[in-house]
């Protein structure tokens, strides 16, 4: 591409430039070739122009839900009942977990995966159960990968950890695009259609509660839970964050979270802290509760307690 002093190109350099440009273009096209297998269904104009959750009015939300319904039907051959369930006024959800009762069976982990349409391969789990040796509550001493034919193991207790729905959440603070926030009933949610996937929230969370879709989630068609909500268990795509949302599609309708329902020993208590008669209010009033990592100042809505007269100490007695 050398220009001579009068600005014209001689033939030789023109051909050289042309071959160079053609070669460059060919190399560029070759470099971009993997994009041919890009699944474009997640990159539609409609989705590109979709507003943030808080800016969608009722008719726009209806349209969005309609679009998601069609997508789910097409992909999983199931007609979902998807709604945008709003929080109730004057309700604040709180969880309490009896460490004395938990036997570490991990039924809650799997019930959660099934309820909330998490990816099965690779499997995304919101709840992590630690097997803790007696004599410490230092979670660094916990075993994450315990695998015994029979639980509980002697001289160990079990500590399930999931999103603590903090009152002062470090995760929502760091999000650059406000794709995650705390709802009035205390549940921290993610707008999966708004998240840009920077994973700053994942770095910020002191409880390892957030999960990233490193690849396109895969759920067998027959295992899809058709009862869905926009901010909770509707299917996600790759490249966005997700997390425990206290099963808000159940709990905002007066049901209990899936992890509580499945617990065989009744170690889990859930409810509205503003209702003095709720299970959690009673636990907080009568039991000696504590929160995990109080020193990081997150003010969790997830409490742990040891019940004195739990069944395992009775077993130990004989």
């Amino acid at each position: 591409m050398s220009c001579s002093s009068n600005g014209s190109m001689d033939r030789r350099s023109f051909f050289r430039a042309a071959t160079g440009a053609a070669g460059g273009m060919a190399a560029l096209v070759a470099a971009l070739s993997p994009l041919k297998s890009l699944d474009t269904s997640d990159f539609t104009v409609e989705k590109f122009l979709q507003q943030h959750y808080k800016e969608l009015d009722e008719t726009e939300m209806a349209k969005v839900l309609d679009r998601i319904t069609k997508e789910v039907e097409e992909r999983y051959k199931v007609r979902p009942d998807i709604r945008d369930i709003k929080p109730k006024d004057g309700v604040e959800f709180v969880y309490a977990l009896n460490l004395g009762a938990c036997i570490g069976c991990r039924k809650c982990v799997h019930a959660c995966v099934e309820e909330n349409n998490q990816s099965r391969d690779p499997e995304i789990q919101y709840i992590r159960v630690l097997e803790m040796p007696r004599g410490t509550i230092d979670i660094e001493k916990g075993d994450h990968t315990y695998d015994h034919p029979k639980v509980p193991k002697d001289d160990h207790f079990y500590m399930p950890i999931q999103c603590h729905q903090c009152e002062n959440p470090p995760c929502t603070k760091v999000c650059p695009v406000e794709a995650t926030w705390t709802e009035p009933d205390g549940i921290t949610v993610v707008d999966y259609d708004w998240c840009i996937g920077c994973r700053y929230c994942e770095a910020a969370c002191p409880y390892f509660a957030r999960r990233f879709n490193f690849t396109e989630p895969s759920i067998p068609k027959e295992e899809v839970n058709p009862t869905m909500s926009y901010l909770s268990n509707r299917p996600r795509h790759k490249g966005v964050m997700e997390k425990c949302h206290f099963c808000l599609h159940r709990t905002r309708n007066g049901q209990n979270p899936a992890c509580l329902e499945v617990c065989p020993v009744g170690a889990r208590k859930f409810g509205d802290i503003k209702d003095p008669n709720s299970d959690v209010s009673q636990v907080l009033k009568h039991k000696r509760v504590f929160v995990l990592k109080e020193e990081v100042g997150t003010i969790p809505r997830f409490f742990y307690y040891f019940d004195e007269d739990y069944h395992r100490s009775e077993e130990k007695g004989d």
Binding site: P176, V177, I196, G239
Partner: peptide, 15 residues
């Protein structure tokens, strides 16, 4: 970024 195509969300809801 997991979703670089959503970069313009930075202009719409800049935290």
């Amino acid at each position: 970024l997991g979703r670089p195509d959503r970069f313009m969300h930075l202009f719409l809801r800049f935290n």
